[in-house]
């Protein structure tokens, strides 16, 4: 069973101070750490589990600059057999839709039974690439998968809905699935795998090598700004009864219950 996993190298902003750079359209990245997008790590692990079950090869693809090879190499150490980088430096700014089209132009020529992507990237948070890609490749899809199993030509899939409800599906392969975090326990890379990965070749594909050279953009990011919310604790004083009453009021007003 051959599996393709699309991964993205993203800045780790959860614990960081995020500052807008001088273009106003991007963030200052020099002090940030970068790593594989969180849900992509689960997607990769799901692929590794499927490979353990069925054999076959895992190919990871990332559209990114040279640094993305570091992330691809991590993927190679954690179960992938092949890695492809599509050179982001060959393109101007890309939106999610264009990215999907570029990925499609490479993936369409590859052999695969399953494509896994993360369900969302933590940087721009669109949740678009997976489904767009599935549509472009004209294969079925399911988003937000939290449980996955497969046999030769069908997948048994559970999607996470709101409120603890789960949707149980049966999907024909080949298909694309966007993977939710928590579906599995992503593995560590062993030192043997790390050394093996360090020596593997990463296939690099430039714009010229793509079958297509024009990709329609859906949207343009005009500017970034700090949303006008700041966290400052509001101490509710008074007697226990007074403070409780204030709190109850706030909870009600904000519709938190």
């Amino acid at each position: 069973m051959d599996i393709i996993v699309c991964i993205k190298r993203v800045p780790q902003t959860a614990e960081a101070e995020v500052k807008i750079d001088s273009t106003g359209k991007d963030i200052e990245k020099d002090r940030l750490t970068f790593d594989m997008n969180e849900s992509d790590t689960y997607a990769l692990e799901e692929a590794a589990l499927m490979k353990e079950k069925f054999g076959g090869e895992i190919t990871v693809i990332s559209l990114g600059d040279e640094d993305a090879e570091e992330t691809l190499r991590i993927a190679l150490a954690k179960g992938a057999d092949n890695a492809i980088r599509i050179k982001a430096e060959d393109f101007d700014e890309l939106d999610a839709f264009q990215t999907s089209q570029i990925l499609k132009s490479v993936i369409k020529d590859l052999s695969y039974d399953i494509i896994f992507t993360g369900c969302i990237s933590t940087d721009d948070a669109y949740s678009q690439i997976g489904l767009t890609l599935a549509e472009l490749l004209e294969i079925p899809h399911a988003a937000l998968v939290i449980d996955f199993d497969a046999n030769e030509d069908r997948a048994d899939v559970q999607r996470e809905l709101e409120g603890g409800l789960i949707e149980h599906l049966d999907v024909a392969l080949p298909a694309l699935f966007t993977i939710q975090t928590g579906i599995n326990e992503p593995r560590y890379a062993s030192l043997i795998a790390i050394r093996r990965a360090a020596k593997k070749e990463i296939q690099v594909i430039g714009k010229d090598e793509l079958a297509q050279s024009e990709f329609i953009s859906n949207s343009t990011l005009e500017k970034l700004y700090v949303p006008p919310i700041s966290k400052q604790v509001e101490i509710l004083d008074g007697t226990a009864a007074e403070s409780s009453a204030k709190l109850a009021g706030i909870i009600k007003d904000k519709g938190l219950l």
Binding site: T33, A77, K78
Partner: peptide, 16 residues
Amino acid sequence: LVDFGSYPETLKSTAQ
């Protein structure tokens, strides 16, 4: 291991 992100998440976040 750190170079390949193969270390406990809590330490990863500390490093970040």
